[in-house]
Nucleic acid binder design. Structure first.
Lengths: 169, 169
DNA sequence: TATTGTTATACTCTATAACTATA
DNA sequence: TATAGTTATAGAGTATAACAATA
């Protein structure tokens, strides 16, 4: 019986599988902690974190969508939930009347502060426990260029809004 | 205004963020390729791959659930879809009449074969493009122990079936 | 005309609890 | 009694397409 026609580099395969598994398990654990500690999902936590990291605590909707993940409509949904919970505000941008500026509130910052220690504990226990400080450094040094590369070359995902040919009934 | 009360190790933070971002972007791209090339989701692809890797092409339901992800009911759902598509079969286990053995079909193997080249291309282009062979080796060497550690210490996730105290309605 | 964002919608997925059957 | 798996159910999340408004 034939094996795979062109066997894949086992080293890469191992790295790839481990990456998938690690991120999947990590995300699972994080979701659970965030949910228990602050009724947050990982996506909403990421959004709040991204906002909290800027001096103004603000971002445009599109920037958030590009940074975190998805479709604009998906972000509108999540931002709506955050706003409803009083964790962010949305206001028209002064610069561009089409744009909406999302800003984290005090309550949002407080929630981050409340949740962060437990979050870090999970990440520390799960991700970094088997790693030395040097290892962590190495890991960052490997992953950062990958991240930049992925960001630079949006190959299939994140095609900005497509427009169909229109016309023709 | 107070910064974070106990600033986090920036190196670890960088590694953590990069990991999240990389896996998220990668998964997005993979989902897209699998969907276009073979009408597969990543989860179902993983299930088929896991099956294809064993000599018999079989696994018990519980083993699959533990290996890939989730709740048993979630796996039942996904296995049902795979079975309906003719990619796997389900049969009672000879050893244990409670157990169900899932087996990949020829069609399942064919679909894997059809989808795999494109899959590898995406992974190669996105994940390994900025990495030397040595880098890939290093990455695997870092991630594998983490994976094993996470598997060994299921901290919050994957509590096997819990049982409430019962009684006392 | 291109871009920003929202809405409506339809669908996929996931988990919890209750249940059956076997060890 | 504990484990394997399924079912019913209910909710959350996501993307696509259509739309309104501004650049």
């Amino acid at each position: 019986m034939p094996g795979p026609p062109h066997s894949v580099d086992p080293v890469r395969l191992g790295a790839y599988f481990a990456l998938i598994e690690v991120s999947s398990l990590l995300r699972h654990a994080i979701e659970q902690q965030l949910s228990e500690a602050g009724d947050l999902t990982f996506v909403r936590f990421q959004l709040l974190m991204r906002l909290a990291q800027t001096p103004t605590g603000s971002h445009r909707m599109t920037d958030l969508a590009d940074a975190i993940v998805y479709s604009r409509s998906g972000l509108t949904y999540q931002a709506g939930l955050l706003e409803k919970a009083g964790l962010v505000t949305r206001a028209p941008s002064p610069d561009d009347d089409r744009a909406v500026v999302v800003t984290i509130t005090e309550a949002g910052r407080a929630l981050i502060a409340k949740v962060l220690p437990g979050h870090e504990e999970v990440v520390g226990d799960l991700l970094f426990e088997p790693l030395s400080q040097d290892d962590a450094q190495t890991l960052a040094a490997l992953l950062t260029p990958i991240r930049d590369h992925m960001r630079a070359a949006p190959p299939r995902s994140s095609a900005s809004r497509r427009r169909r040919p229109s016309s023709s009934s």
